[in-house]
């Protein structure tokens, strides 16, 4: 009797299970929808964050958004502080910035916390506690990866000379055009571009094609560590069957070579010592210049600030 009653109960429960599961899923879905608005910051939350940043900002500060896509913050944050938010930004060394303000909203669904811990946190030390502003938190970090930037090619382009060089021929100087230089074939200018989703203000170079190279000569570059980073801009990068790009930095201590292989997305980078101040020449060459639009960051780094 008891056994058959149990069996009956089990059968009843089993028969009712789909309805119960469906109902639970629906309730959970409604719960999610009710909860989601509470994870979203208000305009006032952002304004409070902006006020804090305005009051406490120092030269070299930067704001990093977490998760990276929460760029509504740009509407509110002071224009005097750069705001970094792009897919992959947790791996950005932010070399020029000794202090990083992380504006985070960890209440949002699927915030990539593990990625943040693994790629951002190493070498970064919190400077005091977090300020809570609604669902937002604002936390300053000392950037252990920061270095003094003694020279930046994009800032120093005004003092540079640009020419087209080819073995066996005299260099052909390129005339100035606006902030940059326009060559008969090729171009050099400071510009904002994207390299693998990262917005970068860089030295934008169009190589002339064939064996000829575009050469940018900086007359006086301080001593330190030369850091060369170069990438193909935007969607041109992923395409195969395009030419490799060869980059060379010739300085007092010798040459630094880099190659951007076809199909490579993102920056390639290399460094070399620059033991003494002196002239440095950057050259860029691609056999076929089609879609070889190169974004170059050439910097000389000193000690940590």
């Amino acid at each position: 009797m008891v056994g058959s009653a149990l069996l009956r109960d089990r059968a009843r429960i089993r028969a009712g299970l789909p309805a119960a599961v469906f109902a639970l899923v629906a309730v959970a879905a409604l719960g999610f929808q009710l909860h989601l608005p509470r994870t979203l910051p208000s305009d006032a939350d952002y304004r409070a964050a902006a006020a804090l940043l305005t009051a406490q900002q120092a030269p070299g500060d930067v704001v990093l958004l977490h998760p990276w896509w929460t760029e509504r913050a740009r509407l509110f944050l002071p224009a005097s502080i750069p705001v970094v938010g792009y897919l992959g930004d947790t791996g950005d060394d932010l070399i020029a910035h000794p202090r990083i303000w992380v504006l985070a909203n960890e209440r949002l669904p699927f915030v990539p916390g593990a990625d943040f811990r693994a790629r951002f946190l190493p070498d970064r030390t919190p400077l005091g506690g977090s300020q809570e502003l609604g669902p937002l938190t604002l936390t300053p970090y000392r950037n252990g990866r920061a270095r003094t930037v003694r020279f930046s090619a994009v800032e120093a382009l005004g003092q540079a000379e640009v020419s087209i060089e080819q073995a066996g021929s005299a260099a052909v100087p390129c005339p100035r055009a606006g902030d940059g230089f326009a060559c008969r074939a090729g171009r050099a200018e400071p510009a904002w571009h994207e390299v693998l989703y990262q917005p970068v203000r860089c030295l934008f170079l169009l190589p002339p094609g064939g064996p000829a190279r575009i050469a940018v000569r900086f007359p006086e570059v301080p001593a330190g560590t030369l850091l060369l980073e170069a990438g193909i801009t935007w969607e041109h990068a992923w395409k195969r069957e395009r030419s490799d790009v060869q980059l060379t930095v010739a300085g007092p201590a010798g040459n630094l070579h880099l190659r951007i292989p076809q199909g490579h997305e993102g920056f390639v980078s290399g460094d070399a010592p620059q033991p003494a101040p002196g002239p440095v020449t950057l050259t860029v060459q691609a056999d076929d210049p089609h879609e070889r639009e190169v974004c170059v960051r050439l910097r000389v780094l000193g000690d940590p600030p």
Partner: peptide
């Protein structure tokens, strides 16, 4: 909801 709504999808 499985994607975490629109913001969840952005994070994914």
């Amino acid at each position: 909801e499985l994607a975490g709504g629109i913001p969840g999808a952005a994070s994914l």
